[in-house]
């Protein structure tokens, strides 16, 4: 077996053993259920498609929760092992640094995928089946929500690795990880809003959508709220999405770039640094 898979397998087993998987799954499932049922309650009588509403509410939840879970899962991947002395040991084995980092990445994304798919999946299934079935479009929207949630998680795992590769200590890595979360989840949007208000909406409508691409959480939001018409209707983003004419495929590619760029950065730093 290639060292890549040995390391990925160990990361997944570690996360299972220390109940990371269980707690993240329960958290996502619990909040997912709560939002799904609260969200679908008012629409039930209107005969709307409850699963489509669930996609809207779950995607808002994802934006807050998944980056946080990912950062906490991965921020000490390198600096933590370095402090325990196991990184030095690992590097003395017949394993390349690339295999170490990618193996960990596969393992961590696997953990996150498991938690997301089981946690959200159960909530989605309950809503979709419970309300007498949903149409194919809604199921597709829900499926792409699951997939893009994992992709968003991968973005923040990659960012966490970059932090972990640069940090001198585990504690400072944790602090910076929280900062990354704050920046992308809270401050960036507030900043954009501020600019919008300050310029009295004069910011060019050709520029504004592109600024949204500077934040993976916004890219995720745009993707999930605009990719499917039935979802778009409930998202309240209909106005904005009228101006934003990025195709879903383009948004996915941007999200993928948000994975690859920090991951490559982490790889370069990890390779260069002497541990």
């Amino acid at each position: 077996m290639s060292p890549l898979w040995v390391i990925a397998g160990k990361e997944m087993r570690d996360a299972t053993r220390n109940r990371w998987v269980v707690s993240a799954t329960l958290l996502l499932a619990g909040l997912g259920f709560a939002l799904a049922f609260l969200g679908s309650a008012p629409t039930g009588t209107l005969g709307a498609k409850p699963l489509a509403v669930t996609v809207v509410s779950l995607s808002s939840l994802t934006i807050f929760l998944v980056p946080l879970i990912s950062l906490m899962l991965a921020y000490d991947a390198l600096v933590g092992e370095a402090e325990r002395g196991t990184l030095l040991l690992l590097l003395a084995y017949p394993v390349s640094k690339g295999q170490v980092l990618l193996g960990k990445f596969i393992g961590h994304v696997g953990v996150l995928a498991l938690a997301t798919i089981v946690g959200y999946g159960s909530a989605g299934l309950a809503v979709g089946l419970g309300s007498g079935g949903a149409d194919l479009k809604s199921w597709q929207a829900f499926g792409s929500l699951l997939g893009s949630s994992v992709l968003l998680g991968a973005v923040f795992i990659a960012l966490a690795y970059l932090v972990s590769a640069l940090a001198r200590e585990r504690g400072s890595a944790a602090g910076v990880a929280i900062g990354v979360w704050l920046w992308f989840v809270v401050l960036y949007d507030m900043g954009l809003l501020g600019v919008l208000v300050a310029s009295k909406g004069q910011i060019h409508e050709k520029i504004f959508p592109w600024l949204l691409l500077g934040d993976p959480a916004d890219v995720f939001r745009l993707f999930n709220l605009t990719a499917f018409d039935n979802v778009r209707a409930f998202s309240g983003l209909a106005g904005l999405s009228g101006q934003v004419d990025f195709s879903p495929r383009f948004l996915l590619a941007v999200l993928l770039a948000w994975v690859l760029v920090p991951l490559t950065g982490a790889m370069i730093v990890f390779r260069k640094r002497e541990w």
Binding site: R17, T86, L89, P94
Partner: peptide, 21 residues
Amino acid sequence: ALTFRRQLGFLPENVIFHDML
């Protein structure tokens, strides 16, 4: 080559193995 390292055994100073396994 990486396989060269199969011929070496190393015990670092102050190594703390993963607790949960």
